[in-house]
Amino acid sequence: MATTVAMPPYYGVVLQNGSSGPDVAMVQTWLNGVQSKYPQLPKFTVDGAYGSGTTAAVKTFQLLTGLTADGKTGRATWDELYAQYASIYGEGEVYCNIVSRAGDQGAVVKSMQQHLGYVRTLYTAIQSLSFDGIYGSGSTASLRQFQPQFGLTADGSYGKQSFGMLKSAVSSIEVGNPLRVTTRYPGYVLTVGSSGDSVRFVQSYLSALGGSIPKLTIDGQYGNATKNAVMQFQASKGLKIDGVVGSTTWSALIVAFNATL
Score class of each variant (00 low, 15 high):
Thr183Lys: 00
Leu216Arg: 08
Leu190Val: 04
Ile218Val: 13
Pro214Asn: 06
Ala229Tyr: 08
Gly238Met: 09
Leu209Met: 02
Gln232Pro: 00
Gly193Ile: 01
Ala229Gly: 10
Ala225Val: 06
Val181Thr: 10
Gln161Phe: 01
Leu152Phe: 00
Met165Pro: 12
Gly211Tyr: 03
Ser172Asp: 14
Pro186Asp: 06
Gln161Tyr: 05
Gly164Leu: 09
Ser168Arg: 05
Ser168Tyr: 01
Tyr222Val: 08
Met165Ile: 12
Arg180Leu: 12
Gly223Glu: 03
Pro186Trp: 07
Ile213Gly: 12
Tyr205Phe: 15
Phe233Glu: 14
Val170Leu: 02
Leu209Val: 01
Thr183Ile: 05
Gly159Trp: 13
Thr217Ile: 13
Lys237Ile: 08
Phe163Cys: 07
Phe163Gly: 04
Ser212Lys: 09
Gln161Leu: 06
Tyr222Lys: 07
Gly193Lys: 01
Val175Phe: 08
Lys237Phe: 08
Tyr188Arg: 11
Thr226Asp: 13
Asp197Asn: 06
Met165Ala: 10
Gly164Met: 07
Gln221Val: 06
Met165His: 07
Lys237Cys: 10
Val170Asn: 06
Gly159Cys: 14
Thr226Cys: 09
Leu152Ser: 00
Arg180Tyr: 11
Ser204Lys: 03
Gly187Lys: 12
Lys215Trp: 02
Lys167Cys: 10
Gly187Ser: 12
Phe150Cys: 06
Lys215Ser: 12
Ile218Ala: 10
Gly164His: 04
Thr217Pro: 08
Ser198Leu: 01
Gly151Leu: 02
Ala225Glu: 14
Ile241Gln: 15
Gly220Phe: 01
Val189Arg: 10
Ala169Asn: 03
Glu174Ile: 05
Val199Asp: 14
Arg180His: 15
Leu152Tyr: 00
Lys167Ile: 05
